[in-house]
Every structure is written in C-alpha cells, then in structure tokens.
C-alpha cells in the first residue's frame, strides 16, 4: 500500500459543494524520503522504508546517521516501513501529498490519547448501575459480578476490568480525502483521527 507519514495539526469543519458542513482533520503530511527499498533477494520480503521530520544529527545514533547518509538525506525522527508499496521508488526519492487525489479513501493510523487508569464504564462501555434508588449506594459506575462462585472458584482470564486506557495504536479505516494542499503539504481528511495534535500519523491508501 502506498502511504506517507504526517502529523496531526487539528480539526475544523468545511462546507462541501452541496452545502453540507463536514467535520475534518488537518494533517501535515510529508515530504518524506525513501531511505531503503527492501527486496525478496536481499531481505526476504518487499517493502519501502520512508522517513519524516527533521532531527538533529548529534541526537541521532551513529548507526542511524549512516543509514540516512546512504539515502543521501539528513537524520529524521520517524521511520516507517510499507509493504507492497505499489509504486516503483528509488532510495532518496521524495514522497509528498501528491500521491493522494481529492475524493479518494485512505486509512489513518496513530496512537490514541492516553487516558490513564480508567474504570469499566469508560474503558469497556459498561453501563454501571443506572439507578440511584432501590437500595443502590455508591454502585453507579461499578462493574457488577465478575463471575460465578465455587464453580469455577476463580475469575476467568481476560475478564474486562478497569486499567490503563488509551495510548493504543488505532487505525481509522476508509476516511475520505477532502482536499490536498501540496504547497503547504497539507491533507484534509473527513472525520476524526487518533492522537493528540502534533502526534505522528501514518496515512495509507
């Protein structure tokens, strides 16, 4: 799949030609550099490795500095590999938002916002006890029973409970590309996208 690395800029809404107000996310995508092309002969599988976002050379390990030098570019922060890129590219080539056409569909992958330790109502959409009366007391957001008693005498593995929430890798599938602005490397995508402003995103088509 063809793709590009980007950063979330923020959300806004835009009017379509039919006059509908469409919520959209602004993404700063690329320009990325191809840093390695993997082939079946050399690596056992086919893939294209691209890199995005400048990084200081003194903050980069020697091994990576040399890796980027091979591709003829400066060190970059984010390196991502795409399998079956579907387009012949050479090492050192630039990839820009031009690969997307307005109205096309794309998938966006990112890391969702971390929510910390959350209860079952937020984490697993449990209902809690939606009653303040009938003898209820401090059970409003409780998980309820965890299982039966003497048989099995234990809680089954994978029982949904409270815990660390968010901060997961999330992929939003089939988002519409509303507009590309190549002069400023911007991409407008319909709907929301995982992660905070400024977080890295992988956009595939």
């Amino acid at each position: 799949m063809q793709g590009i690395i980007g950063k979330k800029v923020g959300m806004t809404s835009v009017f379509s030609a039919e006059g509908k107000n469409i919520p959209c996310t602004v993404i700063e995508a690329g320009p990325c550099v191809v840093t390695q092309v993997k082939t079946v002969e050399s690596d056992g599988y086919e893939a294209v490795q691209i890199a995005y976002d400048e990084k200081k050379e003194k903050r980069t390990s020697k091994a990576m500095v040399e890796h980027f030098k091979k591709a003829g570019t400066t060190p970059k922060r984010k390196v991502v590999e795409f399998r079956d890129f579907g387009k012949d590219v050479k090492v050192g080539e630039n990839i820009t938002v031009d690969i997307f056409i307005d109205g096309e569909w794309c998938d966006v992958t990112g890391t969702s916002k971390g929510k910390g330790f959350q209860g079952v109502v937020k984490r697993h959409n449990f209902a809690g006890v939606n009653d303040a009366t009938h003898g209820q007391h401090n059970r409003l957001r409780a998980p309820g029973s965890l299982g039966a008693s003497s048989d099995p005498s234990r809680v089954f593995k994978g029982m949904r409970m409270g815990g660390r929430t968010g901060g997961d890798r999330v992929k939003m599938i089939s988002l519409k590309v509303l507009k590309t602005i190549p002069e400023s490397n911007l991409l407008l995508v319909k709907g929301s996208v995982p992660g905070a402003k400024g977080s890295y995103l992988i956009i595939e088509k």
Binding site: V9, V14, F15, V26, E28, K179, I181
Partner: peptide
C-alpha cells in the same frame, strides 16, 4: 496554528 490558517484561507 499557522497551518490551520492556510486551510482557513482556502475555505473562508
């Protein structure tokens, strides 16, 4: 927010 302004210009 600079990049947001670019988008605003397109549609405003």
């Amino acid at each position: 927010m600079d990049l947001m302004k670019v988008v605003e210009k397109e549609y405003s």
